[in-house]
Design a protein around this nucleic acid. Sequence first.
DNA 1: AAGTAACATCTGGTATACCAGACACCAAAC
DNA 2: GTTTGGTGTCTGGTATACCAGATGTTACTT
Lengths: 223, 223
Amino acid sequence: MKKVGKFVSYTDQVYREVKGAVISQDIVPGETLQERQIADTLGVSRTPVREALKRLEFEGWVETIPWKGVVVKEIERQDILEVFQCRYANEGYVAKLIAPTIEDAHIQDLNRIDQRMREAAAVVNRQEFINEDRNFHMYLAQLTNNERLIQFLDHLSDQLLRLGIRAVAEEARMDEALEEHKAIIQALKAKAPETAAQAVEAHIQNTEKVVMNLIDEEDWEWA
Amino acid sequence: MKKVGKFVSYTDQVYREVKGAVISQDIVPGETLQERQIADTLGVSRTPVREALKRLEFEGWVETIPWKGVVVKEIERQDILEVFQCRYANEGYVAKLIAPTIEDAHIQDLNRIDQRMREAAAVVNRQEFINEDRNFHMYLAQLTNNERLIQFLDHLSDQLLRLGIRAVAEEARMDEALEEHKAIIQALKAKAPETAAQAVEAHIQNTEKVVMNLIDEEDWEWA
DNA sequence: AAGTAACATCTGGTATACCAGACACCAAAC
DNA sequence: GTTTGGTGTCTGGTATACCAGATGTTACTT
C-alpha cells in the first residue's frame, strides 16, 4: 500500500498488527474489537484504526456488527472447503498456463524451494515448512504474470494461515507433500500442461483431505 | 456494506457514485480525482469520500499517486486478458462443480434468463442482453454456494463493464452466445460435469476472442 | 538572462470533536 | 414482583482542523 520512501502509515501498521493477531489466534473469533480501544492501546487516533478495520472487513477477516463493534469472524468448516475449492480451480489452471513456457531458471528456483522444504522436514520445523510451501505455490502463481490471479491466491493462502501448523501435524504428511511437489516440478520441466495441472490438483486435494480430517477429528470449537 | 434499516452511509453513496462514473466512462482514465474536490461536489466531508476512494483503490479501480491525487486506472489489453484468464479458470470449475447436483428448478431459471436474452437479442437491446448475460453467469456461480468464488467472479464481471456494449457490437455474436449458453444448459441438464465445463470454457474463450479482436481493431486509446 | 532559493499551496495522513442510533440498566409506578 | 419508561453511555458515522511532505512558481541574486 502506498508508501513514500520508508514511510509506513499508521493505517498499515494497525492493519498488520490486527491481522497478525487474528491469524495467530491472539484475538479469538467472537471477540469484539472497538476502534477506540485499539486506538488507545496502540497509541494512535481512531482514524488509522478505522481505515485498517475497514480493510480487514473487506478482506473478510472481521465483521462489523452495528452498535456492537468489530468481531473476528469465525473460521468454519465451510470456509476451509471454499478456500480449497478456489485453490483447486485456480492453481490447476496456473500449472496448465505456465507449463509450456517455463524456463530452466524457474525449475532451478523451484528446486531450491524444494530443498529448503526438505531441510525443514528433516528437522521437523513445521513453521518453516509451511512458509516455504506457500512460497512454492506463490512462485508458480507469479509465473503467470496475472496480477488478479496472484492476488486472489495470495489472499486465499492468508486465510489458511489461521489453521496454523495443523496441516502438517503428522510428519508423514510432509514427506507426502514433498513427493507431490516433486511430481509437479517434473511435469513442469517436461512442459506438460495437463500432467502438471493434474499433479497440482492432486496435491491440493490431498492437502484438503488431511486438513478436513484434522478438523473433523478435533473438537473444532472455532466453528 | 453495513446498513441499519434503510440507512445508507455517505461512504456507500460516494462509492457507488464514483464507481458508476468510472464504469460508464464519465471519468476518463488518467483523470485525477481529489478528496476535497469530490467532497465539495457531493456536499459531504472528506471522511466518507476518503473511505470510498480507499475501497475503490483496493478493488483496483483507481490508483493513488502520492501528492498528486487519485487517478482512474487505465484499462489495458493486459487487464482484459487477466480477467478472461480468471473467468476461464473459475467458471469452468463452477460448471464442473454444480453439474452433478443441479435441479430442474435451476434449469428452468436458466431457461428463463435465456428467454429474456433472446428477447433482448430480437430487438437488438445490447444493454439488456449484457445484463442478462451477467445474470446467467452469476446464477451458475451462486449455485456453488462458495462465497469467495462468487465474490471473485462478481468483481471480475464488474471490470468488464467498462468495455460497455462492445462485446456484442455485432448482432451475430449475440446469436452465437445464445447457442453457447444453450449448450451449457444442456450439459448441465444432463448432469455432465466435463461436458458442461468444456461448454463454459469454449463460451468464455469465444467471448474473449471477440473482445480482443475489437480491442486490437479499434484505436484502443485507453491503453 | 540564467540560476537559485524561498515560499505559497497543493496533496494525503492524522487527531479530535460532535452527532445520532441502540441498548442496558435502574428507578418508579402499578 | 412485574412492567415500563427514561436516561446514561456505549457504538460507529461524519465534519473539521492541523500537519508534513512534495512541488511549482516567483522573486531576487549574480
